[in-house]
Design a protein around this nucleic acid. Structure first.
Lengths: 151, 151
DNA sequence: CATCATTTGTCCGTATGTATT
DNA sequence: AAATACATACGGACAAATGAT
């Protein structure tokens, strides 16, 4: 399973394996992953490696981890349209810790201390002199101009 | 420095401290951070904690880590305008491993195996029936409509 | 209410391959 | 060439919180 002579970091190989098992449906959205110690046995690597691999998947937004509970596969997000007018500009980036706190639901704040890892934000300037708005990247879809006829 | 009784994970406290030192200019963009073992002494925590904190900062896109070399502070990206027409739609998310490979420069491919962690992507659909385009979130700024008069 | 097993978080010792000096 | 520094990876251990019994 793991190729130590390939040069590709073991951490990434394990992350790839877990990700493949998520994509294949072996680990389903909303379900808990096997525990870290179980994953060490499944993929036959040390716990450091498993933990680093899980950190990679968290950074990708594929899983979330709750202390003393475990890691679970995140559901595919459903995004709502957000219309922006002509002349608007938008960038995307990872949120600051403050933004992660501000954008989180109470439940997320309790479980993760903020918006989960791996969730980028939109920074939208609707107009040249209008205030920037920070939007959760997993909740909105930007629509430029006329919002109808969107299919 | 570290408050073990606050309930907030030590990992996050260390990440906050390093991030503050980056924001204050103590660690400058492009410069190497102290090594992991040095960081354990500076912030007086174990290696695992330092490594987890660095993983957090990587996920935020604040640092990159090269194997056997160290971690360095990333420069603030300069984004180029990318015009989108009326009716266009855009979402943001973290890239898949394939996208990370495809969007990376040869140098990034060599050093990180792809686009660095913490870089989201735009998924832009210029029109109802037009093919989606994947854009690096750290390189472009979406502009709706006329690209001039952008200040 | 009390107890116990499970889980993640954290610390440590050790070894290794690679890059730099 | 040799030595040093570094991140990566393995293993063991303990603590604190959670959930089930």
């Amino acid at each position: 399973m793991i190729d130590y002579s390939s040069g590709v970091p073991v951490t990434r190989q394990v992350a790839d394996a877990i990700r493949a098992d998520i994509n294949s449906g072996r680990y389903r959205p909303g379900a808990w992953l096997p525990s870290e110690t179980q994953l060490t046995q499944i993929y036959e690597v040390g716990r450091d490696t498993v933990r680093d691999a899980l950190a990679l998947l968290r950074a990708e937004g594929r899983i979330t981890t709750v202390r003393k509970r475990g890691s679970r596969v995140v559901d595919k997000p459903s995004r709502e349209p957000y219309s922006v007018p002509s002349g608007a500009r938008a960038v995307t980036r990872m949120p600051t810790p403050e933004e992660r706190r501000d954008l989180a639901t109470p439940e997320e704040l309790r479980e993760f201390g903020g918006v989960p890892e791996g969730v980028p934000v939109f920074e939208v300037a609707p107009g040249p002199r209008m205030h920037r708005r920070i939007l959760r990247g997993d909740r909105v879809e930007l629509i430029f101009g006329d919002p109808q006829d969107t299919d």
